[in-house]
Design a protein around this nucleic acid. Structure first.
Lengths: 329, 329
DNA sequence: TTGTAAGCGTTATCAC
DNA sequence: GTGATAACGCTTACAA
């Protein structure tokens, strides 16, 4: 028995009356004489031997661990993404080392250091820090954020999503549209939601406005904007696209407080595809991100980088529209 | 440089012109001559040395990793719990190894094996399998589930929560109460919600009924029950306590479909304290679990088992009531 | 104080 | 095909 009390291959070797090397071969499925194999397997069974992955990893430089950097799990998008990625990793024999950064740039940087110390086989990161220093020695895949030309970024097709939202609103009879966004001001994939929206409005000759709110002053600033655009208790926009479902829900609250209701007075579409966890009902009409596919793709590109072809630097997965009661469909 | 390319203490020692042991002492904060320390620290800085935790753990039998067994992160209760536990672990210098079991007993068992192989320093587990075989060699703390007398179980005060729900409904004018539960039939802490509810009803001489639904047939069975207890489109109960918020939301849907509305026709209270992630509004009136405290306690008991006093076998944390529009307060 | 060397549990490279 | 043996990078007696 070892210092920890758990049996080691040494114990197994003694129990089976063979050498260390033979035990190792059996464990790793290398060719070994039939009776030897049986004796070893029986010894393993008898002793309840379990491989010590730390010793193995020290030797092989392969940990079967992937680090997952997430800002928080309090928001369902991150939680579901983490769920899917972890499940996907486990299916492939990997473990996931979860790190929560709370949107703190310092914490994000510190996590990248931890990842190196812990010799993870790779990192899947959803970060916000503007200037992350990342070591190129360990494979990285990001979600929704460009870290550099050598780091693949997985996202939903934000641009197409923005276009689809505008398209839907128009086809549902809207004439004057508004785009509202909140969130950190780092340049990221999700910015394309507004860009796609705007492109479609412009191309179709639709009247529209773009409103960008800073996190700190979001509710107040939005309310001021709202009041400035209400005449005789009538909102001058009849279609609103919000860059997240969360924002859409808050916008709907503020509208309701002013006697303006969706979908009668104004139609509202969010982005993410969040649904209530039990009823599975969406909180609003929304553009659905293919979270499971994003997870699968992230893991895939991280673990099986295409041999011949260069890894994609940006992979956009198809979105879809889901009516949720805040539009007239 | 080592095989992996990353510098090792050997490289640092050479660079600093000192011995391995000295470097190790500096890294671990052991007493070392002032100029030696400086030289080592400079070398570390220059080389960008990072300790290899795998080598260290192999030697010290301490991994600074805690395994987290969760059924899923798609449900916000588990997600938030995971968030809080992970944050708490990181604050104490631990990493969390996340394992998702999807409520599958086989997966749960397999995860416990993985935990041993990965030499985690401990396990925090929220499981459902009826007969888990757990190795006593590694410290375990469970959430909401009793695994045996030697395994501490953290939970909210489910019994008091059930009582509080009944109490609230009565004080809000209800005369005939109903308790509804769904969920797996393993014996667990959450069962006490119904028990507490029932005890208060009985002690106060209140009329009440208890309804337990199996997961598979939940919606249909509940609707049948509902229809059997509606006379002239009037429900014979005026207060309902559901064992989760998720169930409460579904129950409210079924009631609404029959023209019965909360809180006018019937008052409904759920359990968990789930709120919408953006608006922070509860989905229904509810008994709030102190998730952050539960996380903190779980980590605390796992990592710092009380020296003298025996570890508690069951720790119930105080709940509170939160009105959410489905009751008349 | 500092350096040396043994050993943690594996895998991998050799001779046999 | 099998069994010694040398690493992997680190900590820790112990010797100097």
């Amino acid at each position: 028995m070892s210092s920890t009390g758990a049996p080691t291959i040494k114990d197994v070797a003694r129990e089976a009356g063979v050498s260390l090397g033979t035990v190792s071969k059996v464990i790793n499925g290398k060719p070994v004489g039939e009776d030897y194999r049986r004796r070893v397997e029986e010894a393993i069974e008898r002793l309840g031997y379990q491989v010590n992955t730390y010793a193995r990893s020290l030797k092989t430089n392969k940990t079967n661990c992937v680090a997952l950097l997430m800002p928080s799990l309090q928001h369902p998008f991150y939680a579901i993404l983490t769920d899917e990625i972890t499940a996907c990793l486990m299916r492939r024999g990997y473990r996931s080392l979860l790190m929560i950064t709370n949107f703190d740039p310092k914490a994000e940087q510190k996590c990248f250091d931890l990842v190196q110390q812990n010799k993870a086989d790779g990192v899947i990161a959803l970060t916000y820090a503007a200037d992350l220093e990342v070591d190129a020695s360990i494979p990285i895949v990001t979600i929704d954020r460009h870290l550099g030309p050598s780091v693949p970024c997985i996202s939903s097709d934000n641009y197409a999503g923005g276009q689809l939202a505008a398209e839907k609103l128009l086809s549902l009879g809207c004439r004057k549209l508004l785009f509202v966004r909140v969130g950190p001001d780092v340049h990221g994939e999700p910015d394309k939601r507004g860009a796609g929206f705007e492109s479609l409005c412009r191309d179709s000759g639709t009247e529209y406005a773009m409103l960008s709110l800073r996190d700190e002053e979001a509710p107040e600033a939005f309310c001021r904007y709202l009041d400035a655009h209400i005449q005789n208790s009538k909102l001058e926009f009849d279609g609103i696209f919000c860059n997240t479902d969360g924002l859409a829900v808050q916008v709907l609250d503020h509208l309701r407080a002013r006697g303006i209701h969706a979908p009668e007075d104004v139609q509202v579409i969010g982005y993410d595809g969040m649904v209530h966890y039990a009823s599975r009902r969406p909180f609003c009409s929304t553009i659905v991100q293919p979270i499971a596919d994003m997870a699968e793709s992230a893991v895939d590109i991280l673990l099986n980088p295409p041999e011949d072809a260069p890894r994609p630097t940006n992979l956009c997965l198809p979105i879809r529209y889901l009516p949720g009661g805040t539009t007239k469909d």
